[in-house]
Simulated assay, not measured.
Amino acid sequence: MDPEKTAPFELGQGDDACLLLHGFTGSPWDVRPLGEALAARGLYVRAIQLPGHGSTPEALLSVGHRDWTQAAAQALLTLRDYRRTFVAGLSMGALLALRLAADYPERVHGLALVAPAVRFKGPHMWLLKRLRHYGLLERVKPWVLKSGTDLSDPEALAEAPILPAFPSARLQDMWELQDAAMSALHRVRSPALAAVAEQDHVVDPEGGQMLARGLTASPQVRFISLTAGFHIIPRDKGGPLLSSEVGSFFDRIRGVHAPPGDPKLSPPRPAAG
């Protein structure tokens, strides 16, 4: 993977901040367009690179869900001096964002949960999760190969940094994060926006709806389903609409008006909240 593309980044400045969290085997590259849009609205944006990500498959051998959770928490705590702090996460990053909101309710003022990896798509992954305690996957198939990423935009796909493989044992960590995030839903008291892509080939969009319904203590929950693009929504054809929706949602919490020239985009389908 290109280290310049996958590096963490900081953008913008302001009294409010947003922490960006990428997904499993991904990198900050995946969420940079969303970060740029939020920085343009007057937020300081910080995107971290989760441990073991953004370099080689072997780098994921010695890390797991505890390392990712700890890295996200440490990054959140570095933003303590800002007036309000938001967290936006893509896929696995959305699960980590939920944990942060549940564990640090006084520090997380709003959430954007993008293509949340509540459950993977397809019966094969469902079966593997049910058999996870037997360790069969790691013995039979220690590595999972990857030849691409879930993007519909051919230009974005051509530019995407792609990790060619990952240890199958890390799926155990993903399942742990899924369970932990769902168990924490009732403790989340931040306003939350959940966005899914109808054509996602990695996670089940219905999982995003289930997540939104489970945020029973949140004062406001907005759910949007995007018709354009695949799993890596910020980089795909639905990215501009996602950025507009997330930016407007955070702006309402911040009590500010939309910036001049904010694009007038057609609403996603369906939308509620």
Rank of each mutant, 00 (worst) to 15 (best):
L171W: 03
Q178A: 14
L171I: 06
L185F: 07
M174F: 11
P161N: 00
L193R: 08
Y134I: 09
E245Q: 13
A184N: 05
L163D: 03
Y134D: 06
L145D: 10
M182Q: 15
V246D: 10
L157A: 15
Q172G: 14
R189K: 14
L145M: 10
G148D: 09
E206D: 15
L171D: 04
L177C: 09
E159V: 07
D200F: 07
L163M: 13
G208S: 11
P191I: 11
I224S: 07
E138S: 06
I232G: 02
W143C: 01
A184S: 09
L131H: 08
A192Y: 02
A156W: 11
S243E: 03
T227P: 00
K237H: 05
E198Q: 08
H231M: 10
K237M: 03
Q209C: 04
L163G: 01
E198L: 11
L211G: 13
H186S: 12
E138L: 02
S243H: 09
G239R: 04
V144C: 02
V140M: 02
L145Y: 07
L145T: 03
P240Y: 05
F166W: 10
L171F: 05
E245P: 03
A197M: 03
S218W: 03
D236T: 00
R132V: 10
A197S: 15
E198V: 13
T216V: 15
R235G: 00
V202Q: 07
P240I: 00
L226I: 05
D173E: 14
R130W: 11
E176M: 10
E206Q: 14
L211N: 09
A165Q: 06
T216K: 11
V202P: 07
S147G: 05
L151V: 08
R235I: 01
Q199N: 15
K146F: 00
G207V: 12
Q199G: 00
A156T: 09
K237W: 00
D173R: 09
V188Y: 08
E245H: 05
L136W: 13
Q209Y: 05
K141E: 00
T149S: 05
D153E: 05
G239C: 09
V221E: 08
E138A: 06
I233S: 03
V202G: 06
R132F: 07
A158H: 14
F223S: 14
R222A: 13
R132Q: 15
S190M: 05
L215D: 04
V140H: 02
P164E: 00
V203W: 02
V221Y: 00
L211M: 15
R213G: 15
D204S: 09
A169H: 08
V246M: 08
D150Q: 03
D173G: 12
S190A: 15
I232A: 09
V188K: 10
Q172T: 11
